[in-house]
């Protein structure tokens, strides 16, 4: 079957990006990235609901 899609390096690029993203998430933990997101998310975002 001849498929119209880029096959060759595709999987290796996916795995590379997955690894880089996992690394980015891992690094973000050092400076409390999830904590920063959490602290912002638990307050009711007045911008989101138009009360400014």
């Amino acid at each position: 079957m001849r498929v119209k899609a880029w096959r060759g390096k595709k999987s290796s690029v996916s795995w590379l990006v997955l690894a880089l993203c996992a690394l980015a998430v891992g690094i973000s933990f050092i400076w409390e990235g999830p904590r920063t997101v959490y602290v912002h998310a638990v307050i009711i975002c007045l911008d989101c609901i138009g009360l400014i």
């Binding site: 990006v17 996992a22 980015a24 050092i30 400076w31 990235g33 920063t36």
Partner: peptide, 19 residues
């Protein structure tokens, strides 16, 4: 904190996107 949350969000979205 800005870079930490930037990497965290970008990494989280990127993990889903790459998969």
């Amino acid at each position: 904190r800005a870079f930490a949350s930037f990497f965290y969000v970008l990494g989280s979205v990127g993990l889903v996107g790459a998969a």
